[in-house]
Write a protein that binds this DNA or RNA. Sequence first.
DNA 1: CGCTGCGCACTTT
DNA 2: AAAGTGCGCAGCG
Length: 560
Amino acid sequence: MTSKTKTERILEAIDQLRHRKARPDAQRICNYLFRKYSINSAEAKADLQWCCDNGTVLRVEYKGNTSYRNAAKKFLAVKRDHLLKTSASGNKANRRFTQYLTRVFGELVVVEPDYLDSGIPGEEIVRNILSKDNLYTRRYINILLEKEVECGELIRLENGNYLMGPGSNIIINKPGPSHPQPWADVKIKKKLSPSPELPDSPEANEIEISNVNIKDEKIEIREERKIIREIKISLREAKAALLENGTRVGGRRKRAKKVFDPSDNHIPKKRGRPAGSLNKTTIERQQAIRSRSSDESRPASRTSNGGNQFGVCSVCHLQNKRGPNDKMVACRECSNKAHFSCLNGDDMMLKLGPDNSWQCPHCKTCVVCFETSNAGNLTICSVCADAYHATCHSPAIPEKFRSSTKWVCQNCHMPEELEINKIQSNMTFHRKTSSVHDDFSSESLSEVPDYTPVVSRQSSPSLRQHSPVPLPNGHISPNGSESPSNRDSDEDPNIDPSIPDATHWTPDEVYQYFARFFPDEAKVFKEQEIDGRSLLLLKRMDVLTNLKLKLGPADRKSVV
DNA sequence: CGCTGCGCACTTT
DNA sequence: AAAGTGCGCAGCG
């Protein structure tokens, strides 16, 4: 088994030690690797460090000493608890079909072990079922497959192929002796959470979904992806075993417990530490050992904790920092990392999100269907960096924008009625036709019925038309001469009264206002001659894309 | 003597 | 409360 990767060897060592109830510390892991693979201590430690850095192994402090954990198993346990709570919500698969499917999987996997790796194409499943009997129509099979995916019995991989989900046992009916074969029973004790939009059962309604926000959903999706990775790893192991001609893999058989004197059998044998043996002296001893060895252990732990700052950039493939402030950004989904500076290019697939989180091109998913680019080319919004399949976006993304760096998604797109030209022409029109409000400069815009809803309420959530405001130079803005109480009567209570009314500001007043907070950026408003009204018409997209402001990660927040 | 299994106290979830 | 952890002991080769 020298073909094992270093990660596999390390994980094997950890699993073995855990199985033995021995602490999986560096020393024991090294011993194990030396015994089993003749790997020297230095190399083993380097491998262990490598595994810690790439996240497959977790370094933990437990009971005062350092242990190493199989990250996958750690994750599975946490997720299992979480999902046990959530899986109570209805949405059951067709039990009969699930069993049917399980059998089909077993058969197909025996014919083609690679299916354990790549998943089974839907068409192959359909064909197999159709060839057996006409219990199901092709259409119905597809519907049932969809349902299996939704309830987690089946998993659709990124390539569109299917794997049996964590809730099911693949039964591999291998010809030959029918002795139990552990590898033939691929069990992963997990349940994928049901599709969020599905549950409509009474139980599901009891679940508080009002607090579920987008962030939670994204975390959920990320975790589900990790589960899929776990399943793939487990299946790969099963495949390896299958290819080994059915020989058992894994640890030694447990020896039968020997009872030397049957009369002893009922007497509880005192083993291990006596009660409360981990007393103060033990702890103190451990602390003493720790403080003695802290000089050697600290650098190691620092390396692992600081792992985010190191690693190879998946864009430029360099390991080193490229400048004093060039941090590594980690992909939200996988262990890929990239230099912050490498993500500022024209490649939309490498764009950071507005919250500075990043999905590498491999993990980038359509925000509608959550499928990756494997399910079709993704078009990235140049404002919010969300990705869409052309047909997932509503309306469908026109062909000419599909590889464009200028496309803006519907969420970020300025509504047509807000386009400045139209508003301006609207204003001109209003000026000419209105007999009541013919002096625009002295009127609050909020009093112009066909203008207000568009501009003051929608286009500028942060700057209002109302309330007199002391300008930077001390004087009150023109409409401040009106009685505030008068205007407040028709005011949106959601608008913060501390936000000044910029309606009638001159470009210079706009500049002065912003100069107090953003002395450098404020110049842009002066250069562009943006007066109060123009300012109110600005949309987030304009600020981000048209003002030529240098919007670094921190700046973006303050502008939006 | 080192590896392994495991009872049970302790810790974490 | 349940699950995870690993100390410390005993058996084995």
